[in-house]
């Protein structure tokens, strides 16, 4: 582990960048609501969850500073995400194909 002083680690995100991310999140919300009015059949759930995942990535990376933190944070989040994915995949392998 390298020795960073507190001052070196500080990454200040500009107000403008937060505002842009907010605009992006709003745009994605409008898209997902608009798509809700169209009958996409089986794709409805997949598109809704894909858009929700993109929104989550934006919040995690910028709002929650994951992009600017030490690598360890991203590894932690990755492990948590994989754990959750294993839960979901195992449950569905039981329910979808019996």
């Amino acid at each position: 582990m390298s020795d960073h002083s507190h001052a070196e680690k500080v990454h200040i995100v500009s107000y403008g960048q937060y505002f842009l991310i907010w605009l992006g999140l709003l745009a994605l919300t409008i898209i997902t609501v608009a798509l809700g009015g169209i009958d996409l059949g089986d794709w409805v759930v997949i598109t809704a969850l894909t858009i929700a995942s993109i929104k989550t990535m934006l919040v995690l990376n910028i709002f929650m500073h994951l992009k600017f933190e030490e690598r360890m944070f991203r590894i932690f989040v990755l492990v948590a995400g994989i754990t959750m994915a294993i839960f979901i995949i195992l449950i569905f392998s039981d329910y979808a194909f019996y």
């Binding site: 809700g36 929700a52 929104k55 989550t56």
Partner: peptide, 20 residues
Amino acid sequence: LYWHLVDVIWIFLFPLFYLL
């Protein structure tokens, strides 16, 4: 961070309950 988590959970609740 806690507040953003509350936001992230809603990001999934919203389409699953209101839009599908």
